[in-house]
Design a protein around this nucleic acid. Structure first.
Lengths: 90, 90
DNA sequence: CCGTATCCTATGAGATACTG
DNA sequence: CAGTATCTCATAGGATACGG
């Protein structure tokens, strides 16, 4: 729960499942989460080994985040949670 | 996450898996959670249909909490989470 | 015994402005 | 573009005392 809990981590993993995503794209896709929240959660998830940050270019700076193999196992798990929640209509 | 998240809900379900438990016993078994927290979480879990509160006797008052069938599906799920966490040492 | 009441802290979350 | 800084608010969580 410490690693996967909260409002945003699941959505972040979900949006990374098809490959690396740039920071601003990710923040936009999460509509509703401020950039502050996104970066805070990303730092924790990086620390936990769920995602990997990559600086793609300096000047203009470009950063992408991608899901790790470990993050993929967590995502599979969260999809089960989603199925459970939908099955029971909550 | 809204239904199962946080520090205590998993442990509460875990401690109810072998049958009804009285409030004070439950609070003691959760060592570290104040009675206020326990009752707050129990109320939310009752609302969500995960547990059922039963007044076993008036004077002296005795109350037990037991896991519902729905709560059992959540518990199975949380045990998978526990396995996942242990497997990856987090 | 089963809670409430009261007070406190920490943190997730949201809004908005700013910066290298 | 990818963040920081600053502020506010709500809530989880904790400690302790009190009540029916």
């Amino acid at each position: 729960m410490r690693v996967l809990g909260g409002k945003w981590k699941g959505s972040i993993l979900w949006h990374l499942k098809n490959g690396p995503v740039r920071f601003n794209d990710l923040a936009r896709q999460l509509g509703g989460a401020s950039k502050k929240m996104v970066v805070q959660r990303l730092r924790e998830m990086e620390e936990a080994g769920l995602v990997k940050r990559k600086v793609v270019s300096d000047r203009p700076i470009a950063v992408t985040y991608e899901i790790t193999e470990f993050g993929q196992t967590a995502l599979s798990f969260l999809e089960e949670l989603k199925n459970w929640a939908e099955k029971h209509q909550i």
